[in-house]
C-alpha cells in the first residue's frame, strides 16, 4: 500500500519534471530564430486574427460591465464618506493595477488558450505535425512560434482595451447615471494615476500573463495524448492551470510592484 503511494508520488514528480523540460524545449525551439522570419509574417497575422481580434468582443463587453459594476459598488461605499468625487480614482486604479490585466488574462485563457490547445492537440492526433516534420518543416517554427507571438502581442493590447472600456463604463454609470461631477471624476483620476507606477506596471503584469497563458496552452496542446479524451483533458487543464498561474503570479507581481 505504502510503496504503491510512494511509487505514484515518484511518478508524478518525474512526470512534472519531464513536462517542465518539454515545455522549456518547446519555448526555446519556438523562439530560436529560424532565418525565415518574414515568411512567418502571414502566419502571425492569421494567428493575431484568431487569438486577438476574435477575443475582442468578449474583452470589450466584460470590460464595460466590470467598469460599470465597479463604479456602482464604489459609489455606494464612497457616498457614505461624502467622497464620491474619488470615484474616478477608484475605478481607474483598480482597473489599471488589478482587474484589467487579471480579468483579461483569465478571459484570454478561456477564450484563446483553450482554442490553441484544442487546435494543436487535434493537429497532433491527425498527424499534421508529423507530416510537417516529414516535409522537413519544423512544426515548432511553423505552428508554435506564430501562435506564441500572437498571444504575447495580443494580450497586453486586449488588457489596455479592457481598462479603457472599463473606465468609460465607470464614467457612464458614475457620471451619467449617479450624477458624480464629470470634472471631478477625471481630475481626481488624473491626479492619482501615474504613467510609470500604474499603467506601465499593469502592462508588465499583462505581458507576464501573456507569456504564461500562451506557453501553457501551447505546451498542453503539443503534449496532449492524441486521442479525443486526451485533447479534452489537455484543454481543461490549460484553462485550470493558466487561471491558477495567473492568480498566483498576480499576487507575486503585486507584492513586488506595489508592496
Amino acid at each position: 500500500m505504502l510503496d504503491k503511494r510512494l511509487q505514484s508520488l515518484g511518478r508524478h514528480g518525474v512526470d512534472f519534471i519531464t513536462g517542465a523540460g518539454r515545455a522549456g524545449a518547446l519555448l526555446i525551439g519556438a523562439l530560436k530564430p529560424a532565418g525565415r522570419g518574414l515568411k512567418l509574417l502571414p502566419l502571425l497575422i492569421k494567428q493575431l486574427y484568431i487569438v486577438g481580434v476574435q477575443s475582442l468582443i468578449i474583452i470589450v463587453v466584460s470590460g464595460l460591465f466590470i467598469g460599470m459594476v465597479l463604479s456602482l459598488q464604489g459609489y455606494t461605499i464612497l457616498v457614505g464618506y461624502g467622497a464620491e468625487q474619488s470615484l474616478g480614482q477608484m475605478v481607474a486604479l483598480s482597473l489599471l493595477r488589478e482587474l484589467g490585466p487579471v480579468v483579461s488574462a483569465l478571459l484570454f485563457a478561456g477564450r484563446a488558450g483553450s482554442a490553441l490547445t484544442a487546435e494543436i492537440g487535434l493537429m497532433k492526433s491527425n498527424e499534421q505535425l508529423s507530416s510537417l516534420e516529414m516535409m522537413a518543416i519544423d512544426p515548432l517554427h511553423q505552428v508554435i512560434a506564430p501562435r506564441f507571438w500572437a498571444g504575447i502581442i495580443s494580450l497586453p493590447l486586449l488588457s489596455a482595451i479592457f481598462s479603457t472600456v472599463g473606465i468609460l463604463g465607470g464614467h457612464l454609470v458614475g457620471v451619467d447615471w449617479l450624477g458624480v461631477d464629470t470634472g471631478a471624476f477625471w481630475s481626481v483620476m488624473q491626479a492619482s494615476v501615474e504613467w510609470q507606477e500604474d499603467i506601465v506596471n499593469g502592462g508588465i503584469k499583462s505581458l507576464v500573463f501573456a507569456v504564461v497563458v500562451t506557453w501553457i496552452a501551447l505546451h498542453k496542446g503539443y503534449d496532449a495524448v492524441p486521442t479525443s479524451e486526451g485533447i479534452s483533458k489537455a484543454t481543461t487543464s490549460t484553462v485550470v492551470q493558466s487561471s491558477l498561474a495567473i492568480l498566483g503570479l498576480d499576487f507575486v507581481l503585486t507584492a513586488l510592484m506595489f508592496g
Partner: peptide, 15 residues
C-alpha cells in the same frame, strides 16, 4: 485599437 487604448490611458487617464 490596442495602441490607441494605451495612448488614451497615458494621455487622458494619467494626464
Amino acid at each position: 485599437a490596442g495602441i490607441s487604448a494605451i495612448l488614451v490611458l497615458g494621455i487622458k487617464v494619467a494626464d
